[in-house]
Design a binder for these strands. Structure first.
Lengths: 359, 359
DNA sequence: GTGAAAGCGCTAACAA
DNA sequence: TTGTTAGCGCTTTCAC
């Protein structure tokens, strides 16, 4: 295997200096057209490929941004990453993905690894297993810019991109009320997560606005998983006055609840309505299809990258205000919350799935 | 923002040489215990963090392996990546993921980017949009080891990890025959993919072994997508003698077919049986649950990494034989192919989902 | 057990 | 427009 060609090889072959080759290859303005063409031709001939490791060491910039997500198996994050990649690649950045597997330990490790790799910036969504935020605060104090998305740490001066979880939850609950449901339950996420708190508050607000009582028993703690969805649903059904509808903190929780309802022979949506959150892909595949709230994943990824890009380019200058981007939540009501008609069968909402909250 | 501490800073603070610090930090044997402890203490105090860019430039090794997959949204690939990460991290390697989005262009770009980043090796599964394999052959000729998994290029001297697609397809088809189906259709993948060819051949073999005729009309070309699953299924139903069962090249295709069957009011599995391939997560969520063939994703990831690790450590030495690892395919039969009983209702297979082919 | 010094491949400031 | 030179932070040989 022949050694990789370097700019020195090109320089030697062309009897010019390495500096000239470097400039020619990087589109430096002060280089003659003929030299540039000769260099490019020789580069091709020698199968030259830039060594980004060396460039990075010299320039101090790697052109890589690191993304830490809880899990790529959650469609939502995979989709946000797509948005990040699209914008990042368009601007010549590469994206390095690290999965925290929802644990604090891996999230810390991820930051450490990315800092060692000298990424130019970090995008992060907090793992549900994180209870101590020191590593985030330490990262913020380091020289590397960091932007949080979706699962963020509030009031700590981070730039963030989220969707309007409160409003999304409010609309979802409002929708259940409008379909005639009276006893609407909620299964939460871990309440140390900002998104879980906001969605719980949105749920409460909708009840209040409609003059419905808030019943503590109808709120069960969940954990963003199919399993806790099932368990929480079981507890709800065991109540002396069980609910007739559920707003779940996210789709996997809703899925677990629906599985249990099916096992118990309770028909969704004829007898019971369900709305989730996140608009995971599987929601369109299951029966009945799952009502949810879309989180504008691609846009979230784009916005997060743009904020980070900003921080990178202004790095060094201090800045006293943190930017908080909040995207609209988009209801996607499907079969699982279709309006029950008098005959007991459900009226299905039209097939187009996305309805803007307020046009 | 203070500049990052370097080993020179530690050396200066301790009045030793940079070489000593480097050795102490890297566990070099010829370093006294006291020096090591002093260095480590100072490193902590100065919040030192190794600059991997610089190490890599000097050592020629980045400790990073690149993985190119068609799409992280396909559960199968996400899960293989998990297997890769688990083994790689355990051995001190980091994993950089690149999504080709099923296009040849992005796959080429991915290889280029990873080579520029000087990864120590590449793991790749071929995008379905790839028709020209020059970039793979060129990569193979380069100094960087490359191992293919799942969607591989055969007979080109690559080390590969696959599952036994032929046998998996044969078992799936055999299973449909055993449940009493007579006219079994198959929707293929793009036939330039090795996996699609192998699964088609497994399907044919099962028919042959059971003395069933091979009917060309029952084989429809697909494209690994829900949409082509629907279209192909429509064509199958339009036949003068439509099938009573389907073996689909993979689960998304099977899902599309099942969606159409449901719309047409054809009951699965009472009137029609379906088996997919890949054991995607959604298969357990839909109604009826989807029979499939598990591909041992975690193991595949581990094996692929181990092969690559081998190539990395023996790099330089020529080797004349390519290694081809083939993992067992594991049938996972669920409701969508449950045995129809005489009464017309289906007999459900037991809930445990994985059955080893032959114990 | 430790120091000195060279150099990985590239970029950029300074000269010419 | 091009050449020269220094140096990014680290590892590693060769001394002692």
């Amino acid at each position: 295997m022949p050694r990789n060609a370097t700019i020195t090889d090109i320089a030697a072959a062309l009897k010019v200096s390495a500096g000239t080759v470097s400039r020619a290859l990087n589109g430096h303005p002060a280089i003659s057209k003929t030299t540039r063409q000769k260099v490019e031709a020789m580069a091709t001939q020698l199968n030259y490929r830039v060594n980004r490791v060396a460039s990075s060491l010299r320039s101090g910039q790697t052109g890589i941004i690191g993304v830490i997500i809880p899990s790529a198996a959650i469609n939502f994050f995979g989709s946000v990453v797509h948005g990040i990649e699209a914008s990042a690649n368009a601007q010549g950045y590469q994206v390095l993905i690290y999965q925290s597997d929802e644990t604090e330990e891996r999230e810390r490790k991820g930051i450490e690894v990315l800092l060692q790799a000298r990424v130019d910036g970090i995008l992060l969504s907090i793992a549900k297993g994180v209870h101590n935020y020191d590593h985030l605060l330490a990262a913020k104090r380091s020289a590397v810019p960091i932007v949080l998305f979706d699962r963020v740490l509030e009031d700590a001066g981070f730039d963030t991109v989220t969707i309007n979880d409160f409003e999304g939850a409010r609309m979802a609950t409002q929708h259940l009320i409008e379909t005639g449901r009276q006893r609407i339950a909620h299964i939460t996420g871990p309440l140390h997560l900002s998104i879980a708190k906001a969605r719980l508050n949105g749920y409460k607000a909708a009840l209040r606005e409609n003059g419905l009582p808030f019943d503590k028993k109808l709120v069960q703690l969940g954990d963003i998983s199919i399993e806790t969805g099932r368990h929480a649903m079981q507890k709800l059904l065991d109540l002396s006055a069980p609910p007739d509808a559920l707003f779940a903190v996210e789709d996997f929780t809703a899925l677990g609840a629906m599985q249990l309802l099916k096992e118990k022979g309770i028909d969704v949506p004829a007898e019971f309505s369900v709305v989730g959150f996140a608009n995971e892909a599987f929601g369109q595949y299951i029966t009945p299809t799952l009502s949810s709230v879309d989180q504008q994943t691609i846009k979230m990824g784009e916005q997060a990258f743009l904020l980070l890009k900003d921080l990178i380019s202004t790095s060094g200058k201090k800045k006293e205000t943190a930017v908080q981007k909040v995207l609209d939540a988009l209801p996607v009501f499907r079969e699982s919350s279709a309006l029950p008609s008098k005959s007991g069968t459900a009226r299905i909402f039209p097939l187009q799935t996305k309805r803007k909250s307020r046009p």
